[in-house]
Design a protein around this nucleic acid. Sequence first.
DNA 1: ATATACACGGATCCCCTATTTCC
DNA 2: GGAAATAGGGGATCCGTGTA
Length: 819
Amino acid sequence: MKIKFIPVDYDYFDFEGRNYVKIIGRDEKGKRVCIIDTCPAYFWAILKNNTSQIEIKKLLEKINKIELDVKGRKTKVEKTEVHEKNFLGKKVKAIKIFATNYKDMHDIAGNLGMPEIEKRRGYDLGFITHYIIEKKLNPLCWYEITGEILENSQEFKGIDNSLDVDLCLKVDSLVPIKEENFSPKILAFDIEADEFRIGEGEILMISFVSDNFKKVITWKKRKEQFENVEYVKDEAELLEKFAEIIKKISPDFLTGYFSDGFDLPYLKARAEKNKVSLNIGLDGSQPKFSRGIFTTGRINGIVHVDLLRFIQTAYSQYMQSETLSLNEVANEFLGESKKKFEFKHSSKINGDEWGRYFEYNLQDSILTFKLFEKFWPDLLEFTRIMQEPIFDVSRNGMSANVEDYILHNLEKFNEIPEKHPTYDEIGERRKREKYEGAFVFQPSPGLYENLTSFDFTSSYGSVIVTYNLSRSTFLEKPNKSSYSIEALDKKLYFSKTSGFFPQMLKDIIEKRKKYKEELKKKFDVIKKARSNAFKLLANASYGYQGFFGARYYCMEAAAATAAFARKAIKEAIETTDKEGFKVIYADTDGFAFLLNKKTKEETKQFLKKLNSKLPGIMELELEDFYKRGIWVTKRTGEFGAKKKYALINEEGKLKIRGFETVRRDWCSLAREIQNNVLLMILKQGDEKEALEYIKKIVKEVKERKIDLKKMTIRTQMKKPLSEYKSITPHIVAARKMQEREMPLKAGSLIEYYIAETKSETKTKLIRDKVKLIDEKGEYNIEYYLRHQILPAVENILQVFKININEILDGKKQTTLGEF
DNA sequence: ATATACACGGATCCCCTATTTCC
DNA sequence: GGAAATAGGGGATCCGTGTA
């Protein structure tokens, strides 16, 4: 039997002591297929480099005799081979030790207490990763599979009968083939419950959205019939119906928004309470949950994707949204919003409100479904590039993605994988001192005209590639030709013989460049996603080497990367100044400077000249020309503030960095004022209009004409309430929320305003004036003028030598006309 | 659980000293 | 008059959120 097959979900099982993978996917006709395959399990024993042939022979004999009985499972060394391999870039002799069961390799490795063996490696990848590396059956890629159909077969305990699939195949051979179309079946879902705490309230309704399928199921029966709404008897029947619909639709992907942390665990808890079995897995099993702080819900044969997790790692840093709430994310990516519905306990919902509640619930699934479609190209490309199952890739942080990429590309370098650090090692690494990071130029406050900026492309990535910075190329002692740099209070050396990590990174950067250029010629969603994935991978690789949990952790390489980057930007600044420009500001990998009467053409020529002298793959690019730019002083001290500036380009587009206007923990009034002031000043080059504008707003504030909404301050609670040492205004607000039993946990966004308090409560503390947004009260004029508006505009106007304090106090600004 | 360092700025915390209050 | 309480100043620390 020969089929075309695309693997989607990976699982493994033991049969007669051996490991098998069970992969669920589709064939070219869209039929659901399960394939069973296996591969040899092995790990490596790396030998000391002076081990003689005779010693090796004796060693092999000893190892071949190893037999173990682990938890009633008999496992043994099946065979051994000696190979020439690389480990951390060094040539080594290593014994490839084949064992019966992958799970026992750790124990066998533990049994090799032999002095000739220096290290044991490759037993901690997990069987699925090991299998994918070994057989190269990459997720979401097409294959032609030849194999034997399992039909009412006794093999594997009759697995084909216990699985709800169209075809079950035992693999003989697999060959990658050209891409076929794959349109996965997606089912989005969302629940509404009476309590936010998992399982503590009843689930009132569940909505589903798939292709041409929309449904809300609820046991809150109404007399009237609503579109897409189906009534059931009670919660137990609701849960049964949930399982039924999933089985009927039989999706490849079940997707939710925060469903790892809410919907799925809630369903599980309520199913247990109601003694209903959520047997939605293709093998009839219930969802399984990982332990730990972040729970993840896994369903056999159906990939559960919590979109929030993926958006968090892959997109959040490039998003405008201030929170990752479904509403904001949908607004940004789809231009659609959630339906409005104020949460209330079901006992307090009036008759006619239920219809809107159902619509609200359905809309959440609609948005989730559309978001999945929107992000599908990204999920697909991430999965193909990292070569790990989509279930894992969609939940990975960027460091895990980098590591997956490395592990799946090691074979090209004949490298044995490094092990995961032990608990103790991680502890040691975490204790280490921080190393010096980026260089930030000390700016002089002022308003400047005619500027431009140059940036290093993939700065840290190209530094790593150019100077070959990695764990395997780090040298304890310098050799004849090595790269060297001062960092960590000593001189660090790196070999000039290209290491696998920098080489992989070079490949990543080149691919990113290639796809980006192709995109310019012709837009293509998949290429866009691919280019983006490579970009993220390149950006995360520096952080990876400095991350304490990394297999290829190398603090020296991370410190050297930062040091080389500092050197590069400082040199570029120096050359730029020497050329007759004037550098105003720089941060990490980019710098802005005045043209100083030079033309744009001259500037571009200078860029070319600069680039021709840069080492390796280092490259500067011109970002834009700016009409004006403003840098301000710090609130304390007379120096210019770093990481705070605003630029306007020739089309009138603003680029604002660091100012309160881009910070969500300032009230929108202050942000709006600052934004407008910056715009007015940068457009006109003077402060006159801005001053009038500020005066107008101050007057409105004093006359209480401002909507309370604009006074709301939003601050995130980053940890559990009890862990706070310092009782800040947002913690006072959070305590009030807790008293009211409002949903509250680490990560919640706390909203409050500062109110006028009665005169007898004499207090200096702002926290004593905190009120929740729906609490009755009036905004505190003094606070909003002194602590929100003033700080937002004070430093900007100081550039024009204007003391805004006097305007706030209502004094006549007699000297105004002079400016 | 978890990519890195640098930076700003609000608000509270905490210690010290000066002043006021109390007996 | 002397001890205790309070006020207030200033640096340290906590905390959140940016830039890159």
